[in-house]
């Protein structure tokens, strides 16, 4: 299949990934049937993870790996979960994409990977303090279009 990330884009990403620090794990969830964008998303992530050795990718099927999907609260495909990796330990960061991260969302994914790797959020002190003291689960869903 044709490369999704052309040479120029791949070069730019490699440059951006120069500042990566700690390993990052990407979990891809797809489905063999009735999933329009699963193949393309999986290919994009495969090409992306090949650009830097600190980036790890695991491929899962929503049905066949139902336990993993449940663990990461994935219920639709294609989905990507961003986690940090410490040896064999994968630490869920609560960050998920539902749908192919194309266009602007691709930049979001790249930025998320960099933040996760540097283990920083870039948020202000007041925001961080409030979020860290939350005692109830909070679910944020951001609807976007990949244009």
């Amino acid at each position: 299949m044709e490369q999704l990330l052309n040479e120029q884009v791949a070069g730019q990403i490699k440059q951006a990934f120069a500042e990566l620090a700690n390993p990052v794990q990407l979990l891809f969830f797809g489905l063999k049937e009735s999933c329009d964008y699963c193949g393309e998303t999986q290919q994009m992530l495969t090409e992306l993870s090949a650009l830097d050795s600190r980036l790890h990718l695991s491929i899962h099927d929503l049905k066949e790996d139902a336990a993993v999907a449940t663990q990461y609260r994935v219920d639709k495909v294609p989905a990507i979960v961003l986690a940090s990796k410490n040896g064999d330990q994968v630490i869920d960061l609560g960050v998920q994409f539902s749908g192919i991260p194309a266009g602007y969302e691709f930049s979001t994914l790249i930025n998320d990977i960099i933040l996760a790797s540097k283990q920083t959020t870039g948020l202000g002190a007041a925001t961080r303090e409030f979020l860290q003291t939350l005692t109830k689960p909070l679910h944020l869903q951001v609807f976007v279009t990949p244009t």
Binding site: G94, Q96, G99, I100, P101, A116, L131, L134, Q141, V144
Partner: peptide, 16 residues
């Protein structure tokens, strides 16, 4: 970014 700040409590999903 908010989820990464407290992943045990916060889950953030970008939905197409």
């Amino acid at each position: 970014q908010m989820a990464m700040e407290n992943p045990s409590m916060i889950r953030a999903e970008a939905v197409d």
